[in-house]
Design a protein around this nucleic acid. Structure first.
Lengths: 240, 240
DNA sequence: CGTTGGGTTGACAATTGTCAATGGCCGTGG
DNA sequence: CCACGGCCATTGACAATTGTCAACCCAACG
């Protein structure tokens, strides 16, 4: 049994554990396998490639702490972050032979990962993996709608609400605040904007009282109001 | 054995069959199961909802003919198509209990579908499903990069190349031409643009000799050149 | 024939990008 | 301890892309 949740970056067990346990009801064997897996961690420095687009995927990984992002680089250097990868997220889990990475993964902070228990060994874990997979897809769809149909202000608000929602699954939020260990340029690359414009919109959001962001900590003063303002509905993926 | 490929909308067996067979090597049992499944078709009229966001997914479906799209509608009516669904595509295939639809699906043309052989019965089919799943994800990632970092001209060219690539998997292309049964407004909703702007860019593309589109038939005079111009690499998902 | 759904055009507005410069903060090395 | 360099945030002036609105045309179709 795991108790006592550590602070964001320090711990080496709680975030992924409580997230997966929330996605499905894990039985004792699943919990044991997870605890065992989590005991063998791997550490990455910031700005390292975890995976390179087009290359073989060695093994799936479970993020224990730190942030990463999937990224696609255009030929002329333009860069688009496809999604953020947060503690508790699974990456590289595919069901076919010799999967190739559909995108590169780059760490944004120091990061620790482990190899999750294999798929197909435990039904309750498989269920959690499947739900995680469906959530990942739902977040990709949300990203498409953001980039395609929202203006800069809405994109920022919507993404912050999503991050809050996701981090809260891993107990990494403090009320309506959370640690946001990225630069404005990174945020711009995720939102399909330029850093300059993101900067301006963030200031507008602060003036409007929608978002407060300083020294790596982001606060959403009134999440419900912001959700209404950007027209956001929480994401659900399973009827259970 | 299936032979003789029918024209786009008419047939009721070839496109999905040859696509799935191309994703993995299907054994005899898999082929038999597929032929059996394809014999029980369902027909939808254009502009019908196949699925509604947030509702239970009854069963997965395999598209035999016709086009559909996954869509997300914002509160104020803005509409974003998330991806196109083409003959041979699988939809609603999830691995967890009581999956909910992450987006609505609407038919763009008349469409016929069937219920594909269940997952977990045949290893070669499962492999094909897994590859299809990975391809779906790769196309979502491509859509994100398009919307986030490409300008209108590049988005159009890139999407047309993608459609050509996908349709050719189902033998639904004629050289560098294919049937494009959508309106400019639909295209705009897929590309995060307005119909007016799409119209202007299409004319520019025609003048530039990049794309010819008339009476539902789109031709890419020089696919390689266009791919180079928009900076596109073909999508691969498996090392085999 | 009238109606309707697309496609097309023009004039104009809004959003977002580009470029260039500045300032703060912080770690490093002399 | 201080100078330096680098990274990041910030600002201003201006340009480019894309959206908005409104009108018109045309072909298909009942």
């Amino acid at each position: 049994m795991i108790t006592g949740f550590a602070r964001p970056v320090g711990g080496n067990s709680p975030p992924p554990f409580c997230r997966l346990a929330r996605l499905a009801t894990l039985d004792a064997a699943a919990e044991a396998a997870l605890v065992e897996a989590i005991s063998r961690t791997q550490i990455y420095r910031p700005r390292r490639d975890l995976t390179v687009e087009g290359r073989d995927i060695a093994s799936p990984q479970l993020i224990l702490s730190g942030w990463a992002a999937r990224v696609r680089i255009l030929l002329d250097g333009r860069r688009q972050f496809l999604n953020f990868l947060l503690p508790g997220d699974l990456v590289g889990l595919y069901h076919h032979h010799r999967p190739l990475a559909p995108a590169s993964i780059i760490t944004l902070t120091e990061m620790t990962t482990c190899v999750p228990p294999a798929w197909g060994k435990n039904a309750s874990l498989d269920e959690a993996y499947a739900v995680a997979e469906a959530l990942d897809e739902a977040f990709l769809l949300a990203q498409i709608a953001r980039l395609g149909r929202m203006n800069a202000m809405e994109r920022i608000g919507d993404l912050m609400l999503e991050l809050h929602e996701r981090l809260s699954m891993s107990e990494l939020t403090y009320g309506s605040s959370f640690d946001l260990p990225i630069t404005q340029e990174t945020l711009a690359d995720a939102l399909g904007l330029t850093a300059v414009h993101v900067n301006r919109m963030l200031q507008a959001a602060r003036r409007a009282g929608d978002l407060l962001w300083s020294s790596r900590s982001l606060t959403i003063p009134d999440p419900k109001a912001l959700a209404r303002k950007v027209g956001r509905a929480p994401i659900r993926v399973s009827g259970r």
